[in-house]
Design a protein around this nucleic acid. Structure first.
Lengths: 143, 143
DNA sequence: CTAAAACCTGTGAGCAACTCACAGGTCAAG
DNA sequence: CTTGACCTGTGAGTTGCTCACAGGTTTTAG
């Protein structure tokens, strides 16, 4: 298979295939005639694996070490389980933060309904933002 | 005020002050003696404004145009309201996607409890991932 | 047979919002 | 007068692609 063919087979763009090759996730053979990359069924499996892992939240370095471990005939599954639980916690933290952001935004919108727009007067730029309360989590949560 | 002073006053790192200056959000005067940047109360107001706006989800280009509009003696508030509602929708979309990701991860974790680890055999890398179902929204939602 | 279209190659840059590093200049304190 | 803390501008690193470019190859149409 050539780049475009494996890309179509895995449902990704050719550029993504090239990028993964650059990053060492795919190590295709070469056609000595024209130096084209030759992908086989194993490469396709790796590419599909990588895409599924990405959808589950794995990073490229993580996927690379999982693939390397499989190449060394070790089971990557324990590593998969471990990384995965960390990622789940991160995702849940991101969700909590985004929910807080949404709440802050919604309460701001409500408060703004009664507020006039006003022109900058050298003391304020836009009261909507300047007179909006500092969220609590900035001090207590992020640092 | 010098960089470190305004940074402390606004609760950000000096590097952030320098970065915002590079990006044109702050336009400090210069001390002709040593070419140091001289920030005044107005700069501090802009910096604090920018930080608050960032916490509400505004991007730096958006903040820059809001500040520019205020500099031109136009009320930036209508722009603030408009951009803000778009951002709120984006945030809610991100939350929906993250929630779906979390659900996928959780159901994967549950399914994995009964699965053995297994060693790569040339046909599979890690069944945990390979035999996990394609999420629905990849086809129907993202593209 | 040839010319154009489609594909291949490697590489570098762009995205967002910082953060860090570097090399060299300035200034206050001891 | 030296040390240390600060200043200057700039370039690179972060993440996962995506796009662009310049040039080589292969396929297809005329």
């Amino acid at each position: 298979m050539k780049v475009m063919e494996i890309a179509k087979a895995a449902g990704v763009k050719p550029d993504t295939v090239r990028f993964y090759t650059r990053e060492g996730l795919l190590i295709p053979a070469r056609n000595p005639d024209n130096n084209y990359q030759q992908f086989d069924a194993e490469d396709l499996r790796r590419l599909r694996f990588a895409r599924k892992a990405r959808q589950l939240g794995f990073s490229l370095p993580e996927i690379r070490s999982i693939l390397n471990q499989a190449d060394d005939h070790h089971s990557p599954c324990p590593l998969v389980r471990e990384v995965f639980e960390q990622r789940l916690e991160e995702v849940e933290r991101e969700i909590r933060e985004l929910n807080q952001l949404r709440d802050r935004m919604k309460s701001a919108l409500t408060a703004w309904q009664a507020m006039p727009d006003g022109t900058p007067d050298g003391h304020t730029i836009c009261r909507l933002i300047e007179h909006w309360d500092e969220p609590a989590f900035v001090n207590g949560f992020r640092e």
